[in-house]
Nucleic acid binder design. Structure first.
Lengths: 256, 256
DNA sequence: TTGATGGATTGGCCTGACCACCTGGCAACT
DNA sequence: AGTTGCCAGGTGGTCAGGCCAATCCATCAA
């Protein structure tokens, strides 16, 4: 969890002696953090009642509206449930909250995508709803058109998302979006800029995308999953080659 | 502010002439719903600025604190970002929000778990952090002890969660929790009560759990994943046998 | 024992206000 | 001309205090 020693906010774009000031955490956010931490550490368990709003606000040293903003956020997130005249009770278990706000190394992101996306392709090929197929076909056509015209393409994300949508599984689709969200950090941008220079985009990439689209359209589930998997493996290997430090392990693995 | 006329809650568990009263949606929740809907429908796109709080509150007919509770929730969920003096801007794309609040059929839940859990077992077996292994071993031992003593067990969820934790992948672990969350509806409880009566719990179930724990401990990644997968398949088949209506398909599949 | 009741507690929502911060434009200075 | 300094307006951040409605629970009456 500890970042590198030389703080230096964003290594990818920090050139001078000055680092940007940290954005202060708002009062409601700090309150919410405390509650989340309490749940994670087991100091608050499901069905526990929080102190009354007026009292809790006083103990935390914030006003009641501020506290209520925090509780509203937690309730919208499903961690807590408030009922008039009854109180505010914890709903989520520690397991639900265990990984909130966790950092993801690039290796972990690929672990997740490799678990999810081939299965999404398989499901998409099995279900084949006409609307979804149309969207997928269009996304593939757009990519091919851009590649044919310019010799490269900016992103194949629309195809990945079209496959996810066509799979019709909210949990898996949301999980993919979650993985992609971790792809917008400075570290990733740096990886992309060094690994995915336009001249690196080979015909092979486009071909993999083309084949996945075709397999899904034809309902060839196993083949779709396999192509999607190799596509991700290629992408991962290009991205992570020569990357020794990955900080994904902060403890020693065990031998049998 | 007006609720629906004929309440008519959940058709899946409505047996008598009386339907449970629908829990009224709070004002902040309704506001948040509107924003989410606007994002989903593309009426609000990333980088769009929302109207100023005072103005938006007036437009929606709520007070500013109420509006702020809604925005606090949306910000905690990462859909929106407020900065003092600048305004509130949309962060999330329609894709992120596309599946929020979606219902999951039992079939879909198993689709997700079958995609995620074998991979979690594989990763757990590859990483094998001592703390996680200890937790997993304990969870397995608890299950065996309960089964040996009573001839059945209430739940193998602790083992599933221990495997997830040992995989050290926040996105996948959270996705599993999300899938499990959809397992607490009335429909699922009904399925469980009819399919998992104590006398149905066979030695085979416990044996599968035992084998997964052992494979993970020994670092046999492929075997761990395979056993976990068959365990889920067995569970699914027992649960869904004789279940014709699944409502997972609301459009006609396409032929090639 | 049972049922009603009324107060105390709790969250739900509002009004109004002040502060801190950001932005953009204008004026003063170099 | 370009830079700096300043300030006013708009914005979110926070607070204080209040009223209402749902719930709970101890009390009391039948």
């Amino acid at each position: 969890m500890n970042t590198s020693e030389k703080v230096s906010a964003d290594p990818s774009e920090d050139a001078g002696p000055f680092a940007p000031v940290v954005a202060p955490r708002s009062a409601p956010a700090q309150v919410a953090d405390q509650v989340v931490a309490a749940i994670r550490e087991g100091r608050l368990r499901p069905d526990d009642r929080l102190p009354a709003e007026r009292e809790l606000a006083r103990t935390l040293g914030v006003s009641r509206p501020t506290l209520r903003e925090a509780l509203a956020g937690l309730e919208l997130a499903g961690l807590v449930r408030s009922r008039q005249g009854h109180g505010t009770v914890v709903v989520a278990s520690a397991a639900v909250v265990a990984n909130w706000g966790a950092e993801m190394t690039p290796t972990q992101v690929f672990e997740a995508r490799l678990a999810i996306e081939p299965e999404l392709a398989r499901l998409a090929a099995e279900k084949r709803y006409p609307e979804d197929i149309a969207v997928l076909r269009q996304a593939g056509a757009d990519l091919e058109e851009e590649f044919a015209r310019t010799g490269h393409y900016r992103s194949d994300l629309p195809v990945h998302r079209a496959v996810a949508r066509a799979a019709r599984n909210p949990v898996l689709a949301t999980a993919l979006e979650e993985a992609l969200r971790h792809t917008e950090t400075a570290r990733w941008k740096e990886l992309r800029s060094s690994a995915l220079r336009p001249e690196v985009i080979r015909e092979g990439h486009v071909d993999e995308v083309r084949r996945v689209v075709r397999h899904v359209i034809r309902g060839e589930a196993r083949e779709a999953a396999e192509v999607w998997r190799t596509h991700l493996v290629h992408y991962r290997d290009e991205m992570l080659t020569g990357l020794q430090i990955d900080a994904g392990h902060d403890a020693e693995p065990l031998e049998t």
